[in-house]
Amino acid sequence: MASLRRRAVPYLLISPTVALIAAFLVYPIGSVAYYSLQNRNLTRPWADGFAGLENFRRMLFEDELFWQSLGFTAKWVVAEIGLQLLLGLALALIVNESFIGRGLARSLVFSPWAVSGVLTTGIWILLYTPGTGVLRFLGQPETAVLGNLDTVFPAVVVTELWRGVPFFAILLLAGLQGIPGELYEAAAVDGAGRVRRFRHVTLPHLRDAIVLATLLRSVWEFNNVDLLYTLTGGGPAQVTTTLPLYVAQRAIDSKDFGYGSALTMAGFVILLFFSLLYLRLSRFGEER
């Protein structure tokens, strides 16, 4: 009896965790997987029922918008991550130098990160508003940046950069501060100039921070809904629709939850790949 109780204790102790994981991860994922195999459309209740792989067939072979949104998602993630990394690194290097007012400069650099996504949109919509927005200073007061196919992509990228660069800057600054000063002194003594010190001391030490920040941010940018949804709603003509936004349009706006679930599964598989990559690389970092 006593030994049974003893054996039960570990299970009892992990049971809350298991219950929470089951309730908040296993069940929702399972239910999306289930619905992806069903016809489930609130506007066509008479057609509900088992669909097999029909939703996936439609997604892969008939739905141009799926591929278009996937293509835009890739373009969006690459542009955002590339620019955020570059600008974030530059900012981190600047505020890592010692100069008068550095504390103030640091807080200013990081402040956009503290602004919520929807507020960010609010600010930028005002900036982009024709007539009263910032473009009147460029002599183009009547240009609708968010309604023009040529300008909408740069416009949304800049908006997200404004919010995303500080995140990189914070992480990279933390990495920079972890580099011992003696290394730079030693390198300087050996005759290394600024550029070589950066290449051979700074960059190798920042490697882990860069890899992790890049991967984490990629997942976040992939899943970005708040900013694009409120800024452009995925438009005009769906040219700024990411895969998660497209899921929202199909499942929530069109009430086609079966098809929306199939789209979600596609996003799930892609993100699973990123997660595995992240796990591998983060363990890789530990071993060294």
Partner: peptide
């Protein structure tokens, strides 16, 4: 028609934008 609202909103609003943009 239960589908009327999704046809006239989610399905065709982006297409109307394409018409305006000449696409």
């Amino acid at each position: 028609l239960p589908q009327f609202s999704s046809i006239t909103k989610a399905d065709t609003e982006p297409l109307f934008q394409k018409v305006l943009l000449g696409q």
